[in-house]
Design a protein around this nucleic acid. Structure first.
Length: 764
DNA sequence: GGACGTTCTGTTTTT
DNA sequence: CAGAACGTCC
């Protein structure tokens, strides 16, 4: 049994699978069967008699972990379920909940996402009376994150002369104090941010030898995927855990390191052999994925980078088609070209939608692509993108869940204390923050004992606060007895959220309602998943949802449908497609203008380009446009330098667009250059058959409003789906933002609607 | 406190 | 262009 499945591997792969003892580094070129090696390695370990729960396998996404678990399950059966497998963040969050008391946290600590952290920072800057343009939340969080990543506490930071000098020079002398307050507030809220999960794991292992020993013995075998994208904090965790048995196996490709911006340190992989003596190194250099032409082009491009491990990726696959490069006039025309090409290729190659992917550098690029695909009725799905859990209505309801589980969660409290409106406004909340800080307690504690604090607020507000405290406590009391679904449903209706959303009959409101329903369905699944197990309560559900992404939900329905996938290149890591389109190959966009200052940054962009090309199995299509709408302006663009780095014999230039363009060859001017050209007209009327919602585009004040301002709604178009009470738009008149639309409903009733931002509000 | 209107400002990638 | 932040009115 043991050997039959190893026969599926080539000698390179097999060597890497069978070297189970001691430090191992596997350098796996793009498309070389890396996941296969990891999967087989784990299966092989278990076959050799290693208990699954002694294996810790760290992946880059939860989805990768789940897929790998499934594949191992196919090889060895049920045992796969007991593996410790997941992202660094999810695995160590789980571990920290077990050991929370050792580091002074309760087991039910909250996990703050980036939004929570930013809101908290904004609040702190305001409370400290600092200028919020000099201390911007995003910048602060970035810096705090990188400092936490190098495991530096606020105290250490403030004692570090170099950092202090840096801050003085940058006129940020209060940064240390902000960092300290931020951490303190997190602690008072019983909350951790993403970096804390790794930071506190390090502290736990460093300061508690008995815990260290426990986990060293527990995780006898450690495997790390995408090692090139680990940061210092993660490196230190691994080093501590692996120190005893030294069975650490890292897999990665330095050429695909694309997360330096969030602290990934490519030196981890470059220096692995120095960190662990007697490392066995395996190189997987045969690419099974792409055509010769794609492999050659990618190799040529990446060879321009100075920092890299030596390896020669090669393939025995067929020569394949040349990489196609096309030029468009504008971003919307680029979209049309791509959509048309997909349309044609689908027929000529008898291909399915899901064999196509469109990749781009920034999320904002998806819009013109989506429009073009919709016009040709090509079904598509945006992969990644805004996470389900980042939507306002979901965050609001989840904030109630968080607050129920952990009353001290300040950001959850901030979100919902006055939602739905219950008369506790900003003024009252600010006063409670002050009282909390003065008494060194959480805001919840202030609220709980509101009468003792003699706050200078209206007695009405005091009453409201008492009611709110009672409400949340009543939810908490039900925690042990109610299932997650039952309690969530109870909370949704008892807070008034359901009622509020139900009353909102705008398309967006209905959509929000659907999202809430989806969340509740998710909870139902969670509740019913394992009837044998102990009661699936809400606090258990909350344990790791903070770390899920949109790809972790909805998988059954969405995953297997036949749709073209759109995503950023970062999100495409680890995926492959027959036909890949990479849009926006323009200087200052890709490479990003934020990343052309230093060689290191530029090399990371080049690796990103390498990742993008190597996603393609059969055909890679690159495109750029000579103008692009950004921030409301048409900017002139020049082709990306990366295009020139592809050897000419790998490339074929295809259809380019050039009627009446007023394109000048002058070098890129940072100031917007406005093109006086109207984009080519769209010939086909827009079909709305598969479109659920109608939303409105904003209209410039003073300009007349017409039907074209209804996104996706051509003149006279009929909205087929009447679930939302929207019928046919008859006329639209007036000026933004108070223009009016007359709409005829299917029952013949006519109503006047107010157009305001993206809402349709019924007037009569 | 809350609804609604106006002005300003940012502008990469994400566990 | 879109969303945040601010200002004005009830």
């Amino acid at each position: 049994m043991e050997n039959d499945f190893l026969a599926h591997l080539n000698p390179e792969q097999r060597g890497a699978v069978e070297a189970t003892e001691g430090p191992v580094m596997i350098i796996a070129g793009a498309g070389s069967g890396k996941t296969r090696v990891l999967t087989y390695r784990i299966a092989h370990l278990i076959n050799k008699g290693v208990d699954p729960y002694q294996i810790l396998s760290l992946t880059f996404t939860n989805k990768a972990a789940r897929e790998m678990k499934e594949r191992i399950g196919h090889l060895i059966g049920d045992g796969a379920r007991d593996l410790w497998m997941g992202t660094f963040h999810s695995v160590f969050a789980r571990l920290l909940r077990r050991e929370a008391s050792k580091i002074g946290y309760p087991a039910n600590f909250s996990i703050y996402d980036t939004d929570d952290s930013k809101t908290l920072l904004k609040s702190i800057v305001k409370e400290m009376g600092l200028n919020d343009t000099a201390y911007k939340a995003s910048g602060l969080l970035g810096r705090i994150s990188s400092i936490k990543t190098v495991l530096m506490s606020p105290k250490e930071y403030m004692n570090d002369i170099q950092y202090q000098n840096e801050d003085r020079a940058a006129r940020r002398e209060h940064f240390g104090a902000i960092y300290e307050t931020y951490n303190k507030r997190l602690y008072k809220s019983s909350a951790m941010d993403f970096d804390d999960l790794l930071y506190h794991t390090n502290i736990l292992l460093r300061d508690h030898p008995e815990s260290l020993l426990k986990y060293q013995n527990m995780f006898r075998y450690i495997l790390v995927d995408e090692y090139q994208d680990t940061n210092f904090s993660q490196y230190m965790i691994l080093r501590q855990l692996a120190a005893r048995h030294l069975n650490i196996c890292v897999v990665g490709d330095d050429a695909q390191s694309i997360y330096a911006f969030r602290g990934a340190n490519i030196q981890n992989i470059l220096n692995f052999q120095k960190h662990y003596s007697d490392t066995q190194v395996f190189k997987l250099e045969q690419n099974y994925r792409s055509t010769k032409n794609i492999v050659n082009a990618a190799n040529q491009v990446i060879s321009k980078n100075r920092d890299q491990l030596k390896k020669t990726v090669w393939t025995s696959n067929e020569e394949g088609e040349k990489i196609r490069v096309s030029r468009a006039f504008s971003d919307s025309e680029e979209g049309r070209q791509i959509a048309q090409s997909i349309f044609d290729t689908r027929i000529s190659k008898q291909a399915k939608n899901k064999e196509f992917a469109i990749l781009y550098r920034t999320n904002a690029q998806s819009r013109p692509l989506e429009e073009a695909l919709r016009k040709l009725n090509i079904p598509y799905r945006i992969y990644g993108g805004l996470s389900f859990y980042q939507r306002k209505e979901i965050k609001d309801l989840m904030a109630y869940f968080r607050l129920t589980v952990n009353h001290h969660d300040e950001e959850a409290l901030r979100r919902v204390i006055n939602y739905p409106i219950r008369g506790i406004g900003d003024t009252t909340f600010d006063k409670m923050i002050v009282a909390a800080a003065d008494n060194d307690v959480s805001i919840w504690t202030v609220m709980e004992n509101i009468a003792d604090f003699n706050l200078p607020v209206q007695t009405r507000a005091i009453e409201k606060i008492k009611e709110f405290v009672t409400l949340i406590k009543s939810f908490h009391a039900l925690l042990p007895d109610y299932s997650a679904y039952k309690l969530a449903d109870y909370i949704a209706s008892n807070t008034g959220i359901m009622k509020e959303l139900y009353q909102d009959r705008t398309p967006e409101g209905v959509n929000r309602m659907e999202n809430i329903q989806e969340l509740l369905n998710g909870l139902k699944d969670f509740t019913e998943k394992d009837p044998e197990a102990e009661m699936p309560t809400l606090d258990k559900f909350m344990e790791d949802v903070a770390l899920l992404t949109s790809e972790d939900i909805n998988e059954d329905e969405e995953q297997n449908t036949d749709k073209v996938l759109l995503m950023t290149i970062h999100a495409a890591k680890g995926l492959e497609f027959n036909y890949v389109y990479i849009g926006g190959l323009e200087e200052n966009l890709f490479p990003s203008q934020m990343a052309i200052m230093s060689r290191e940054e530029l090399e990371e962009e080049r690796r990103l380009f390498y990742v993008a090309i190597t996603r393609a199995k059969k055909q890679a299509n690159l495109s750029y446009s000579i103008s692009r709408y950004r921030y409301g302006n048409a900017l002139s663009c020049e082709p990306s330098r990366f295009l020139e780095e592809i050897p000419a014999d790998c490339v074929e230039n295809i259809a380019t667009y050039s009627p009446n363009e007023s394109y000048s060859q002058s070098s890129f001017d940072r100031r917007p250059k406005v093109f006086n050209v109207t984009p080519p007209p769209v010939s086909k009327p827009i079909s709305l058959t598969n479109k659920k919602l109608v939303s409105l585009k904003k209209v410039t004040a003073g300009a007349p409003v017409d039907n074209s301002h209804l996104t996706g709604l051509a003149a006279g178009a009929k909205v087929e789906h009447d679930r939302f009470g929207i019928g046919e738009v008859i006329t639209v008149e007036g000026h933004y933002p108070n223009s009016k639309a007359i709409v005829m409903f299917e029952n013949g009733e006519k109503k006047q609607l107010l157009l305001r931002f993206a809402h349709l509000k019924v007037l009569s």
